[in-house]
């Protein structure tokens, strides 16, 4: 009879469960308002409960005004970001919170009679010939939830469509994702198209087969490793940071 895994009791010589060893402590979400009516909105966002957000927003829009509701929604989402940063929340909880945030935001904007002024505009797409878009969708949700206007062009998008969308929407940033090495070539052509149109903005590229080495080999290219970086990168571009400065901040070019 040979020995098997059932004969082992100590696995440390083989692997160490760092996820158990350094597991973050559970913590409750912090309140963002002492006003129960507003805290109910924030709680709905933190818990990703669309119904709670809708009910609380409806009441608060009438009693406090839509702008106060919008401010509270944003504070709630900021608490969600903290919980994610602390390892207490995982992505699905952030996405559900983002869904709930959008419910309240749409109600408040309708009451306000106009859309909230956005921090900037980001045109997002998945490369021509590529249909692997879950990373783009996650990044879009995070960027949108952080107060930016997202023009999501979807998947398998021709280069000229991306350039036109950037021009028509006065975009601060274009992003592209791809899983295949032979579809990501399109990002370079998008960057060239922007240059031809005189649109001087960065092109952030990311995805399974996309490499920093390749993205930084052409003008305007800035490489992103994770969807989570999206909101800060959008902020950099919206604040007027050049693609060269963004590349210096986010990438290592030898």
């Amino acid at each position: 009879m040979i020995k098997t895994v059932n004969d082992l009791t100590d696995f440390d010589p083989i692997f160490i469960r760092y996820d158990i060893k350094i597991a973050p402590k559970k913590r409750a979400a912090s309140d963002v308002s002492t006003d129960p009516a507003l805290q109910a909105i924030a709680k709905g966002v933190v818990e990703g409960d669309e119904d709670m957000v809708a009910e609380a927003s409806k009441a608060a829009i009438a009693s406090k005004g839509p702008q106060t509701v919008i401010d509270t929604l944003i504070l709630g989402m900021a608490e969600v970001s903290k919980l994610w940063d602390d390892g207490v929340y995982y992505l699905p909880q952030v996405i559900l919170s983002s869904d709930a945030l959008m419910v309240g935001l749409n109600m408040a904007e309708e009451a306000l009679g106009s859309a909230v002024v956005k921090k900037g505009t980001v045109v997002m797409h998945c490369a021509h010939g590529d249909i692997h878009d879950i990373g783009k969708n996650v990044a879009a949700a995070l960027i949108r939830a952080n107060g930016y206007k997202v023009i999501d062009l979807g998947s398998d998008v021709p280069e000229e469509t991306v350039v036109k969308a950037a021009k028509d929407n006065k975009a601060d940033l274009v992003t592209g994702t791809a899983l295949m090495t032979t579809t990501m070539s399109a990002f370079h052509r998008v960057a060239e198209g922007l240059t031809k149109e005189g649109i001087n903005i960065p092109v952030v590229a990311s995805g399974g087969a996309v490499s920093e080495e390749w993205v930084t080999s052409w003008d305007r290219g800035v490489y992103a490793t994770f969807a989570k970086q999206g909101p800060e990168m959008a902020g950099d571009a919206a604040s007027g940071m050049s693609w060269e400065d963004m590349r210096a901040k986010w990438n290592l070019v030898l």
Partner: peptide, 10 residues
């Protein structure tokens, strides 16, 4: 058995 022991509880 070695390969299973390597990763079963990883």
């Amino acid at each position: 058995a070695i390969n299973v022991a390597s990763d079963k509880y990883r």
